[in-house]
Nucleic acid binder design. Structure first.
Lengths: 192, 192
DNA sequence: AAACAAACTTGATATAGATCAACGCTGACT
DNA sequence: AGTCAGCGTTGATCTATATCAAGTTTGTTT
């Protein structure tokens, strides 16, 4: 139940057996069926969640009702509306399960307790957030600099697995283009 | 020389006098004249820098030679090509001074020493990177969801100071639109 | 297996914003 | 004080991608 969890954390920091046992106590295990919501826009996001198995997406819905996927999270990733979670404000993102999933959830109060009692978790999350920043920076640059086709090709290169696991309309949404445009792009690419 | 520096760090974590003195020893002070480079694309980024005074921008230049501003950093902000700094890879960003500036710089080796010897700095940077993530998430959402005019209005609201301090062509670049478009947007807004 | 709803494709048309070009203003350096 | 480069404005045109619409394929539920 904590397999993926510990293997991911121990890649970045060391924990004693005692710390491991303590760490477990802060988390709640939950199963989600495909399409089930973990968070809905407008609620306060009460959990930071680690994906043990499955795949979730977090997205924002605009005035026209169009969904813009902000992040996919599968085995070994964390997901949450970070801003809502840490500031206890209303969430701007919705999170739901793309596949049946199993997650480990922690509340803000427990997160704070955890960083006090296991200070090395501050280091773990420092490294985690730092790596997240690289990715976000790349995406931001990509979204401003490249054409729709280049964005798709770059995603295909950097994240081939995603394309196999996620329906094309969600990929389009993640890239910030319409499904129609993505369909045409793929046709053009395969014609060459 | 470390005024802004300590006031910003002490907002987030506490330090003993001993830790403060030790912390200082890891940083190098540097003055930059307007237009002077702190980092050029293709180099490895050897420093993470805190801005004591002034204003820097970090940007990426595309194949057409167009600059895309990724981040402005003024008093109390950190700047670096994070990915290049932490992975010791070639930088994709260039950083230069928009105004005469004074900065405090730390190398990766010293950063690592610092987090070992003053573990609470892991916490400081965890919180810092976490806050950065909120902002990047917002910008990404904004860049995909909103029209050029909405992006501008949102920036004006959330960051009025920036508009006063930075030339309009850089604001356009930061928003991912052309200077011509921004000029037209402002005209439209003021006509109403 | 039938029936229905998603997901994907293809074509026609519309549009936001880019690009190209010319000109005026401002402020920095000689 | 004069000159020149950079910044901002405005207009005309172009283009990548969105939007709208219809049809096809795939997958899920009963």
């Amino acid at each position: 139940m904590f397999d993926v969890f510990f293997s991911h954390i121990l890649e970045k920091v060391s924990l004693t057996e005692r710390e491991k046992e303590l760490l477990k106590t802060y988390f709640t295990y939950k199963k989600l069926r495909k399409k089930q919501f973990l968070l809905e826009e407008g609620e306060v996001c009460h959990y930071l969640s680690f994906v043990e198995r499955g795949l979730l997406k977090s997205y924002n819905t605009d005035e026209k009702g169009i969904e813009h996927v902000s992040l996919f999270a599968w085995e070994g990733w964390w997901t949450s509306d970070l801003s809502s979670f840490f500031k206890e404000e209303k969430a701007i993102f919705t999170i739901d399960a793309v596949e049946d999933s199993e997650i480990l959830m922690i509340t803000l109060a427990d997160f704070e307790k955890m960083t006090i009692e296991i200070p090395v978790m501050d280091r773990y999350f420092r490294i985690l957030f730092q790596n997240s920043l690289f990715t976000k920076e790349q995406r931001l640059l990509s979204s401003v600099t490249y054409s729709a086709e280049e964005k798709y090709l770059r995603l295909a290169e950097s994240n081939a697995q995603l394309l196999l696991r996620v329906p094309q309309n969600l990929i389009a949404s993640y890239l910030g283009i319409t499904p129609e445009t993505l369909s045409r792009i793929k046709k053009n690419i395969s014609r060459r």
